[in-house]
Amino acid sequence: MRAAIEVAGVPLEADCAGALYWPEEELLAVSDLHFEKGSSYAARGMLLPPYDTAATLAALSGVIAQYDPRTVVTLGDSFHDNDGPSRLSASDRASLGQLQRGRDWIWIAGNHDSEMARMAREIGGVFAHTLSIGPLTFRHIPEGAEGEIAGHLHPSARISWRGRSIVRRCFAADAGRMVMPAFGAYTGGLSIRDRAFAAVFGTRDFMAHMLGGRRLYAFSAAHCL
């Protein structure tokens, strides 16, 4: 299920899987996929299960099937490091190719995969630093500008209710800008009460749309712990 959120006057739909859909443009955005994070850690001695790319691709396949977008935009850090594409398994590579078929695919470069220009040649799609369409601008690192849809921060919110503490990934948004949740299977979260978010939203209050199993739950950031 999705929640209707407006950014810079543009009606958007936030999906509880963590993807963002722009109906008018038939555009689907996801952020911080961090493909091959598992194998990246393995190279450094932590042998995490090598199934994260497949798991992320499966989730991505789900939202793409649901929305059937004309354009898919990935908001940066799509790979955990610049050698990620070389470690993709044959079957994951094929799955990715399948998802790209029949639609535009735009990889926005992040800080982890800064060499996206080169990488895009290996894995299909086109690369960009930012993407501006109408009032909206898609980029990786948020600057707080009006109309911005960004990633990088992996927003997560915590509320306390009935003596229990609940943490979920979330969309952080106010009327003018949004920071998307991280989509990757192994991605962690940064609390929206961290000052990095204050740098984006200033002293204005903003909403945390927490991802539930079947829908999103909206809380004002001030109410979160």
Binding site: I159, W161, G163, R164, I166, M210, Y217, F219, H223
Partner: peptide, 22 residues
């Protein structure tokens, strides 16, 4: 009651309650 856990860990139920309360 009040000191212990509530229904399952379907904390979605809790989220819904908290949201409605606010």
């Amino acid at each position: 009651i009040g000191a212990e856990m509530v229904y399952g860990e379907a904390s979605d139920v809790l989220l819904a309650e908290a949201e409605a309360d606010l």
